[in-house]
Write a protein that binds this DNA or RNA. Structure first.
Lengths: 146, 146
DNA sequence: TTCCTTGCAAACGATTTGCATTGGA
DNA sequence: TCCAATGCAAATCGTTTGCAAGGAA
């Protein structure tokens, strides 16, 4: 999906909810399209050189999450990072550096993904839990920290 | 491993570090041995009916993590839950409820675990990243929230 | 006695919210 | 025009820390 069509999809989604695709929201989305991993509010704030106030970034993140455009990344201590939802960005997993905390996306080929899917379904069928999604976090050291 | 031998292993580990296995630390460990998933500081605080001050719980968690007895579960927004480290509790994965945030342990059989291992190694070999551990989080709804 | 540990309260960092103002359809 | 969205500052929430008192070796 091109960056342009992504913005279009997102604008549609917001309009369906009677919300506007404002410049703050566009900035957040644009940064996340470019980024190679999820970003936190303060990382976005830095990315914008402080031009967008933190409170506006937080409010944008709330709205974009509520409308299913962004998803929180469950993988960092003490802060929340966000990324584009799967329908926009495709399924993938993460590397998480145990030293510097950086998070990087990683693509997974179909063969492996199918075996993970099978495993998730098999496991969930044994307990009272309805699986909706899964996330494989690979913890280790990134090139810089190794 | 029995609960008794767990406490013994843990006490040894602390003594090696010239630290004491105090009652606050014992309470935290005991609660995590019993729990069917990782717990946060405030969940532990509730568990103890407020008898152990939050600051002591936090300090216990820090010490127990530094000595490799507990591992943080990087999960839900804004708070950190802890669980016994793998050498005490064995490898497993998690169900995370997207509504209430509850986290529950789930065992994985060897066959499936081997395929996840293979996948992690394969993926990591393609990029400059040294894998140390991995966590498969299955997101969905728990019985109560379904 | 010595030093680790605790309890309380104040300090902190990330996130949220009240309110008056701005801005987009 | 009208109401969503913003900016600022104050409030909250989870977590950390300084310091004096308590407790185990």
């Amino acid at each position: 999906m091109t960056s342009k069509s992504l913005h279009g999809e997102i604008e549609n989604r917001l309009v369906e909810h009677e919300l506007r695709y404002t410049s703050a929201r566009k900035s957040v989305v644009a940064a996340l399209i470019t980024s190679d991993g999820p970003l936190s509010a303060s990382e976005l704030h830095d990315e914008f050189g402080g031009s967008v106030p933190l409170s506006s970034i937080y409010r944008s993140l709330v709205v974009l999450e509520e409308t299913g455009i962004l998803a929180p990344h469950l993988g960092t201590k003490g802060l929340t990072r966000y990324e584009l939802a799967e329908w926009l960005r495709g399924h993938h997993h993460h590397f998480v550096c145990i030293d510097c905390g950086a998070v990087e996306d990683v693509a997974v080929d179909d063969t492996h993904e199918r075996s993970v899917d099978a495993m998730v379904n098999e496991i969930s069928s044994r307990v009272a839990f309805t699986p909706i999604n899964h996330a494989l976090e690979i913890e280790g050291r990134c090139a810089r920290c190794a």
